[in-house]
Amino acid sequence: MADPAYSAALLDHFQQPRHAGSLPGDTPGLCTGEAEQPGGGRLVRFWLSVAPDGRIDAIRFKAFGCPATIAAASLASERLAGRSRGEAAALEAADLARALALPEAREPAAALVVRALRSALSGPGRGP
């Protein structure tokens, strides 16, 4: 039987993460950013390839943390591939938390993913 602590959507993204990995450093329009929980807990990093018209051509993520962290990063990547920079910036942690049916205690995982994403969107060519 499935673990009752996790929703089907969370399990799906955790078991088959979308857009996992990284983009090479010479990717055109590369933007990177990360967010880390204080004390060395969850860590999420995004690589975005943003076209001149502001469209996200490619998105990749890496995540360390609980299943909710990995699933939220995967879901965010799935939602934003092919979308505009503006749409990406409008993504809220609550959207991810709702879609994955995260319990309140796990909402910080979604918030961290959104912070990592906004860090990547805040400027090109930064970060690792």
Partner: peptide, 8 residues
């Protein structure tokens, strides 16, 4: 080891 709300 488990993630909880605020920290690992």
């Amino acid at each position: 080891s488990a993630c909880t709300s605020a920290r690992q």
